[in-house]
């Protein structure tokens, strides 16, 4: 039974047109050339920043400072990555970000799975009301300031839990899981209930394993969201720099060097060697941090891609 079900959900490849051949016209050729040119240019525009970032972090620092690096890396070395270890609060931010990504995503996936399962149960007391009660929060919010005051009231500002608890219930993901669970043949569950299994047992032994594709989808998207989080760190962690996320830290480094640059411009004087060294350091540091924050995304990306369409198409089905 399970095998049949799995085969059903196999991915469909794109349809390749097998229509009868027709003559290629001049218009077709011109269109193809323009089309390919457009996509090649756009794809390069998407790839190039990543490439340029990489070669700036591994090229010789002096050459980078002089602006001699354009398209090819020169004097390749990896010292920048090693020197990151000694950059002040960076390790702390890294730990915080990893912790929130792992804990936050784990709890979110568990909660979405359980809630998604529970709301498919017609016999629940007030089921449709509670389902709407959760889902409707996607469409309104009280606004940033009341939200912040609420977090302050709950003692979640300057508190690591402020990253975790508000994200546990994610309405959109609940819709995705619910829609998926509804597509699982009901007989599987029913036979388990007849054998005397409890709801919780059915959830753990049947629903959870069968929903793995959708749970993996929301896990990956949740993890990326947590890894990229910046706004909540900015708003609720104002007084505790040890809780800044990596993106927040990177934002600060980016701003810092801009400011130094502006000071340099306005003062229009020769900078002392130490200031210059600091500036240089800040420049390579910010690019190396950028690279470090982007690497995990690029690593999970191939896995993510498998789930793109599945997630999006399920999302198109309303709750």
């Amino acid at each position: 039974m399970i095998k049949i079900f799995k085969r059903k959900s196999d991915k469909k490849e794109y349809y390749v047109s097998s229509a009868p051949k027709y003559k290629t016209t001049l218009g077709d050729v011109i269109f193809n050339i323009l089309n390919y040119t457009f996509f090649i240019v756009f794809t390069i525009a998407c790839i190039f920043p990543f490439y340029y970032l990489l070669i700036n972090t591994i090229s010789d620092n002096d050459l980078v400072r002089k602006g001699a690096i354009t398209f090819i890396p020169k004097g390749i070395h990896f010292k920048n990555y090693i020197s990151l270890k000694s950059v002040g609060d960076l390790m702390q931010s890294f730990k915080v970000t990893v912790a929130r990504t792992v804990i936050g995503t784990g709890l979110m996936v568990g909660a979405s799975g359980l809630v998604g399962f529970l709301v498919t149960k017609q016999e629940m007391w007030g089921r449709s009301f509670w389902y709407r009660f959760i889902i409707i929060t996607m469409y309104f919010n009280a606004g940033l300031v009341p939200w912040y005051l609420n977090m302050a009231m709950l003692g979640l500002t300057d508190n690591f839990l402020g990253y975790i608890i508000p994200g546990i219930v994610a309405p959109y993901n609940i819709i995705l899981v619910k829609t998926y669970i509804e597509s699982i043949p009901a007989e599987l569950e029913e036979s388990a209930y007849i054998d005397g299994a409890s709801y919780f047992k059915v959830f753990l032994k049947i629903i959870w394993p069968l929903s793995k594709p959708i749970l993996a989808t929301i896990a990956i998207f949740g993890a990326v969201g947590n890894w990229n989080s910046f706004q909540d760190s900015l708003i609720i962690m104002q007084n505790d720099a040890s809780l800044y996320t990596l993106q927040h830290r990177l934002y600060m480094y980016l701003n810092q060097t801009t400011n130094i640059g502006q000071v340099m411009k306005s003062a229009n004087t020769k900078l002392s060697a130490s200031t210059q060294a600091a500036l240089l350091n800040a420049k390579t540091i910010k690019y190396t941090i950028s690279m470090v924050t982007v690497i995990p995304i690029l690593l999970v990306y191939p896995f993510m891609q498998r789930y793109f369409e599945k997630g999006i198409m399920l999302g198109a089905v309303k709750g």
């Binding site: 909660a111 359980l114 809630v115 529970l118 709301v119 149960k121 016999e123 629940m124 007391w125 007030g126 089921r127 509670w130 009660f133 959760i134 929060t137 919010n141 009280a142 606004g143 300031v145 009341p146 939200w147 005051l149 609420n150 709950l154 608890i165 508000p166 546990i168 219930v169 309405p171 709801y199 919780f200």
Partner: peptide
């Protein structure tokens, strides 16, 4: 029906606290 309801209560409470309670801040 109540068993299912009690299982979902913690999550409803979370939604209430983080999505409805801020309205009180108005």
């Amino acid at each position: 029906k109540y068993k299912l309801f009690l299982l979902i209560i913690p999550f409803i409470a979370l939604v209430f606290v983080f999505s409805y309670l801020p309205l009180w801040g108005w």
